[in-house]
Write a protein that binds this DNA or RNA. Structure first.
Length: 485
RNA sequence: GGCCCGUUGGUCAAGUGGUUAAGACUCCGCCCUUUCACGGCGGCAUCAUGGGUUCAAAUCCCGUACGGGUCACCA
């Protein structure tokens, strides 16, 4: 059997939309699960849209996600060049070959005539379609015009009647009436190929066996089919995948702020989690497991699991998956990721960042949530006495005041040099035992006093230990003062 | 508008003529607990719609509605 070769062919726009990334992922998975080649081809024929550094965005994103290509602009390969603008020479030759074979023709209609046609159609409320004016030009007429140096394009000669059927792995056979097809332009006036043409030729020249692409190309697929047939080339396997939506009506777009891979990473998501999540958009695994590493995805991925309807991007689900990945991180690794975020609000040097990270790991969904969670370590902000009220443990402001008054001398009694979690724990539990009260009656008020927050990473003991004796006593006193009012 | 494609809970979705219509996320409740979270347990909630075909339809056929895509010398 022929070796599987797939390709990811993005345009360098400076922006990696996650829909594109997902296409790249699927393309990669199809190649890798059959030991095939994954090829990167840059489609930069639109010079007007060229953006500086855009190719690097493509390289970096793919690398970061682990989608390593076997052939590409930077590493070369047997069917290069891999940048479309560098392959311009050959397209015209193929178009001319097609003219010879009767599958295409020269068209000398100028912009004025075409615009006139369009205006006419519009006036009559009809859909514009090129009227095939030049299609029946005789060989001699063509030659004369060519010799006269008239500008021209080369158009594909669509069958006048009958129907075309093309096959998509997902959608099955799709048949359309040839009358629906316009004699599309293959070679532009400037001698350059249109996307549709370049794509077909390049895919053939590069020996591509499977093409994964967005659903928006479904409509042009019949034209591709005809082009392949006209050349007598083998048609690759097509897999059209549906879009990723923001909601039922709208595609996820740049304006939404989380449509690109980069946006997501900047928002505190882990690369692996993003890759895992986008694989799940429009694709369902066979079993019930849905957390997959890239290598697991290679084994698990199957075209039959792809969906024919659009998927809505759900930030909440991404968050949940991200949280799972964060929990799986080795503590040192988590610390490495989390420290910069902790440092956004925790500036003091005399604090154990590692310990804060330990307390944080199980309660972090997204890294960007961290700064707010730890903002009380440096300075205690004003808070409402109501925080001392806890229904479940039947604790109120009055009881809390008493607890804080009990706690204060106990903590004062711990020597500065013995200010550790273990010691604080020991002394406070002695107090609890002595007073014969529930843990919460002592520990909850302490936690509120040292943090001033309803929710904190870690409890009163951990926080006290982290901020040190002086700060702890100071904050407990402030609590007593607040509750005494 | 023409053509093409699609429609299972709030979201992702399994399902291919006979199922109590999986699972995950969200939400809610309970347990655990030093708060919140984590973890554990449980719950709410779905086959767009109307006709067929069939002993039997989420599943097959036709229509309707709704949504998407596409109709460039852009990719």
């Amino acid at each position: 059997m022929k070796k599987v070769r797939t390709r990811f062919a993005p345009s360098p726009t400076g922006y990696m939309h996650i829909g594109n990334l997902r296409t790249a992922l699927f393309t990669y998975l199809i190649a890798k699960q059959q030991d095939g080649d994954f090829i990167l081809r840059i489609e930069d024929t639109d010079r007007e849209r060229y953006v500086e550094g855009a190719v690097d965005v493509i390289y970096n994103t793919l690398k970061q996600c682990g989608l390593n290509w076997d052939e590409g602009p930077d590493i070369g390969g047997p069917v290069g060049p891999y940048v479309q603008s560098e392959r311009m020479g050959s397209f015209k030759k193929y178009a001319e070959e097609l003219v010879e074979k009767g599958g295409a023709y020269y068209c000398f209609c100028d912009k004025e005539r075409l615009d006139g046609l369009k205006a006419e159609c519009e006036a009559q409320g009809k859909t514009y379609s090129y009227d095939r004016h030049c299609r029946c030009l005789s060989h001699d007429e063509v030659k004369a015009k060519l010799d006269a140096g008239l500008p021209y394009v080369i158009r594909q000669k669509m069958p006048l009647d009958g129907e075309v059927t093309f096959h998509d792995e997902l959608y099955g056979d799709i048949t359309v009436d040839c009358k629906e097809l316009e004699d599309q332009i293959l070679i532009k006036t400037d001698g350059m190929p249109t996307y549709n043409f370049a794509n077909v030729v390049d895919d053939h020249l590069m020996g591509i066996t499977h093409v994964v692409r967005g659903n928006e190309y479904l409509s042009s697929a019949p034209k591709y089919e005809l082009l392949y047939k006209a050349f007598g080339w083998e048609v690759p396997t097509y897999i059209h995948v549906e879009h990723i939506m923001k909601d039922k009506q709208h595609k996820l777009s740049k304006r939404d702020g989380d449509a690109s891979f980069e946006d997501l990473i900047n928002k505190g998501y882990l690369t692996e989690a993003v890759v895992n999540y986008i694989a799940l958009l429009g694709w369902a695994p066979k079993g019930e497991e849905e957390i997959f590493s890239l290598s697991e995805l290679i084994k698990e991925f199957d075209i039959s699991g792809l969906s024919k309807s659009p998927a809505i991007f759900d930030p909440l689900k991404l968050k949940a998956i991200n949280a799972k990945y964060i929990k799986k991180l080795a503590p040192e690794e988590f610390e490495r990721y989390a420290t910069p975020y902790v440092r956004q609000t925790v500036k003091r040097e005399d604090i154990n960042i590692s310990r804060i990270c330990q307390l944080l790991q199980d309660r972090t969904e997204v890294f960007t949530d961290i700064p707010e969670k730890v903002d009380f370590f440096d300075t205690l902000r004003e808070y409402e006495p109501a925080l001392y009220f806890n229904k479940k443990n039947k604790i109120d402001e009055e009881k809390s005041l008493q607890s804080l008054k009990d706690i204060l001398p106990v903590l004062e009694g711990i020597d500065e040099s013995e200010w550790t979690e273990d010691n604080i724990h020991e002394k406070l539990f002695e107090l609890i035992a002595q007073k014969e009260v529930k843990n919460a009656l002592i520990l909850l008020p302490l936690r509120v006093a040292v943090s001033g927050k309803a929710s904190t990473p870690g409890g009163g003991i951990e926080i006290s230990s982290l901020i040190g004796k002086a700060d702890t006593l100071d904050r407990v006193r402030k609590g007593i003062e607040l509750l005494s009012k």
